[in-house]
Amino acid sequence: MATGLAQARLAEERKSWRKSHPHGFVAKPEAQPDGSLNVMLWRCTIPGKEGTDWEGGSFPLSLQFSESYPTKPPVCAFPAGFFHPNVYQSGKVCLSIINEGDGWKPSISVKQILMGIQDLLDTPNPASPARHEAYLLFIKNKTAYKRKIVEQAKKYPSLP
Rank of each mutant, 00 (worst) to 15 (best):
C44Y: 05
E13Y: 07
F65E: 00
E12A: 14
G57P: 12
S90T: 12
V39A: 03
Q64F: 06
A2S: 14
G116R: 01
R18G: 07
E13D: 15
G48S: 02
Y69H: 09
H84N: 06
Q152M: 14
P73C: 08
S107Q: 09
T143K: 07
L10S: 06
C94A: 08
H23T: 06
V75F: 01
S62W: 03
R14N: 14
G116N: 06
V75M: 08
L5C: 07
E133T: 11
V93Y: 00
W42V: 03
S36W: 04
N141R: 03
D53V: 05
P129D: 02
Q152T: 13
F59E: 02
H84G: 03
R14K: 15
S20W: 05
F83G: 05
C76F: 01
L120M: 14
S66L: 09
P160D: 14
R131P: 00
K19M: 09
Y145F: 14
Y145R: 03
P74H: 08
G48M: 00
L114I: 03
F82D: 00
F78E: 02
Y135L: 07
A11R: 15
G48W: 01
K49I: 00
G103A: 14
A144N: 05
E30C: 08
L63M: 11
V150I: 14
S128F: 02
K28T: 07
K49L: 04
G24Y: 05
Y145W: 10
E67C: 09
P79I: 03
A153E: 03
R131N: 11
P29Q: 11
S109Q: 13
P126N: 07
G24I: 04
Q89Y: 02
G57C: 11
V87N: 01
G116Q: 04
I117Y: 00
S66G: 12
P157E: 11
R43Q: 15
S68P: 07
W54S: 04
K15I: 12
A144R: 05
F82H: 00
P124Y: 04
L121G: 04
P126T: 01
S66Q: 06
E12F: 07
F138H: 07
A144F: 00
F83K: 09
R9V: 13
M40N: 04
V75E: 06
K142R: 14
F78L: 10
F138Q: 01
K154S: 15
S16T: 15
I108V: 10
W54M: 04
A2E: 12
Q118F: 03
W104P: 12
N141C: 03
P22H: 10
V93R: 00
D34F: 04
S158D: 11
V39N: 03
S107R: 08
M115E: 03
D122E: 15
V110Y: 02
C94M: 02
S109M: 11
F138T: 00
I117A: 01
D122V: 04
K111A: 07
P29G: 14
E55M: 04
W104I: 13
R9L: 13
P124N: 09
S66D: 09
L41P: 01
L159T: 11
L5T: 15
D122C: 13
P124D: 11
N86I: 06
S90G: 05
A153W: 05
L95A: 02
G57V: 09
Y69G: 03
D53M: 13
A130G: 12
G103T: 12
E30D: 08
L137Q: 11
S128K: 09
A127H: 04
A2V: 05
F82S: 00
T143N: 10
E55C: 03
F59A: 01
